[in-house]
Nucleic acid binder design. Structure first.
Lengths: 212, 212
DNA sequence: CGGGGCCTTGATGCTGTTCAAATAGAGTGG
DNA sequence: CCACTCTATTTGAACAGCATCAAGGCCCCG
């Protein structure tokens, strides 16, 4: 029942036609897929692995835009250049395709992909905004654990990113991240199996911690 | 020379055709244009006045999404309902039009408006994210003053929003806002004429305070 | 001229940061 | 397979920035 077919249809829910002429690229851990301020003439579809997008300020402060997984589209921008860079969190594989020069909204298949990716980006950016604006450290971490868990089927969730990545995503320090994770575990809401794997123990209580 | 015609063409830079069948609505200060969680079947074009969008959490914490001025489009959403509500900051006037049910990306004139508004939203949400994630109180306030000023021709800038609105936009308290404004004024970077009008005195120095 | 909301200013406290050090864990070579 | 090393993570203590609490002043508008 859990055949290759159903697995394939899960891996390419919108049909693979849009990505027919795309180039297949591989990146190793930490490698840059595209750079901040680079011209944004390619868009990418993540086939395997995980990616972070990050924005670096002049003085070294960093903000992680988001984390991406299989089937997510990255590289779509509102301007001519990339506001964020994209780096592979582990070894990963992407399809890259040139966006046909048209920045406008058209009926073509690729434009539909761009539209969907843009609205998805907007939704996630808005959620991220709410998180950064008015949430306590504990709420941010709780929401993060829930969000990551929501992307997986299995009960045990893997964290492909470092504590520093989490900190730069949540607008906190690694020490605070570590302390809040410890607190949530001590309260029995989550259980860690090493630093990079966890399981949610009390979902509703964790949701309460995450507030709205 | 500064005729009605040129004023009109400024008021409708992309042609008014898209808004031909739109209803004209007026709101008084503080009135709600649309509510959080309400079905998002209308989009709006702000003709006169200023608007804030805000998201309320269960415990009363509030996050301002953004501030909007003449010719801005509001009400475009990533889902079926409004994630933010919209309120008039002063008396204002909007055009409202039903988005034709099609959530997809099409070549129609209205779809083009929606596309442009969506990308504008994404860009602003990303900037806002960077501001909330890794900026100090002083940097946030400096950037805010620059951003608002960038929307006006004149040298003297009016603030249509209260200190509470600014605070909920920047993720700070009104007291901190007030102190930072005082500090920037004491440093000679800006000059206030009453609480709601200011002038930028040293633009480059203010830009430096705002960091990236 | 007076009322009331908005804004500013001051004193104190708490959350999260910073600095510092210990520990755990992953990768490597013997 | 184990010891070793290097990095990532955790933990602790002191500090700083912003929040909170509390007055006081300004300004707008009747």
């Amino acid at each position: 029942m859990t055949s290759l077919l159903s697995q394939q249809s899960f891996a390419a829910p919108q049909g693979a036609g849009e990505w027919a002429g795309a180039a297949r690229l591989c990146f190793r851990q930490g490698e840059e897929i595209y750079a901040q301020d680079e011209t944004a003439d390619l868009i990418y579809r993540l086939v395997r692995g995980a990616v972070r997008t990050s924005h670096l300020l002049a003085d070294g402060r960093r903000q992680i835009g988001d984390f991406y997984y299989e089937n997510d589209v990255i590289g779509v921008e509102t301007g001519a250049t990339h506001r964020f860079s994209a780096e592979a969190l582990g070894d990963c594989e992407v399809l890259a395709i040139r966006r046909s020069g048209s920045t406008a909204c058209e009926t073509g298949r690729l434009e539909r992909v761009i539209w969907q990716a843009t609205t998805a980006e907007l939704g996630r950016a808005q959620s991220h905004m709410l998180l950064l604006g008015r949430a306590t450290a504990c709420e941010r971490v709780a929401r993060f654990l829930l969000d990551i868990a929501a992307r997986f089927r299995g009960e045990i969730v893997a964290l492909p990113m470092s504590r520093q990545d989490m900190a730069d995503y949540l607008g906190l320090t690694i020490e605070t991240i570590s302390r809040m994770l410890g607190r949530l575990q001590a309260a029995g809401l989550v259980e860690f199996l090493g630093a990079r794997r966890y399981r949610i123990r009390r979902f509703s209580a964790l949701s309460d911690m995450a507030a709205a």
